[in-house]
Nucleic acid binder design. Structure first.
Lengths: 126, 126
DNA sequence: TGCGCTCATCGTAGAATTGCGATAGGATTC
DNA sequence: GAATCCTATCGCAATTCTACGATGAGCGCA
């Protein structure tokens, strides 16, 4: 239960419903491919995280891995810093944690908590 | 019916890891569209969950909503039961909980716990 | 300077996704 | 049976995704 009442969205603005859905969908989409989940797990399991290591670890071409890394970078889940001739990739643990929070904010509905009555209802019952 | 993709790639890893990555990616992909996040939230916020309500709630055509529901059904996140002339949709809370667990199993790495040393390392350090 | 290494990007092809209208199927009601 | 309502599916077009090889850009080193 690490869900505070108010949680800023990825860009810092308050989390309205549209923002919630957009952010959750964006991060979920970034993780919506087994290769990208594998990359994230691989990065989390190591401290050294050079692109070459990932390419060796996956049965994919270097260009394909680079493209998956670009998707992860665009989503904010992964950051890449230039280190000489190489690029050191790391998971942005804050963004990953925020993703967990977004999923958790879906979860309270598992208990049918009254919290689940979002403003969506207003649009249905004006 | 379409043939199941059954990705041949990402082999050479223990079945646990491959299953983890496949399941997490599949569920994340299902939630990787704002409309589907919206549908899931809407279903969780109401006890009555007929398809028509969802169509009215979303700015999308009925056929498009039905297609999104099919994606959610295929992922297991949503179940649909025929109720007379209508179909009552509900979120499978167990599957949603499992999704949260899968994300949480990614999270311990936030603390750099030794748990994060998965068998991935063995392939890199023989 | 020139070479080699590392990674990003381009171009391309095939597959998948997204959205819609039109239509078919199934159940209820008259 | 006929009419009606609700939902799934089909067909289509536009877009995006995925994967690859080839090429280019940037850095370090001889």
């Amino acid at each position: 239960m690490r869900t505070p009442p108010k949680q800023p969205s990825l860009d810092g603005t308050p989390l309205d419903d549209a923002g919630f859905e957009r952010d959750l969908a964006r991060l979920a989409k970034a993780l919506g491919h087994p290769a990208r989940v594998r990359i994230v797990r691989f990065l989390l399991s190591r401290d050294t995280c050079m692109c070459g290591d990932i390419v060796e670890h996956l049965p994919l071409a270097q260009s394909t891995v680079s493209q998956h890394l670009k998707v992860l970078k665009d989503s904010g889940l992964v950051q890449g810093t230039i280190a000489g001739p190489r690029v050191c990739y790391c998971v942005d643990r804050e963004v990953l944690g925020r993703f967990g929070d977004l999923v958790d904010r879906l979860q309270p509905c598992l208990e049918r908590a009254p919290d689940c009555r979002t403003p969506l209802d207003q649009e249905e019952e004006p």
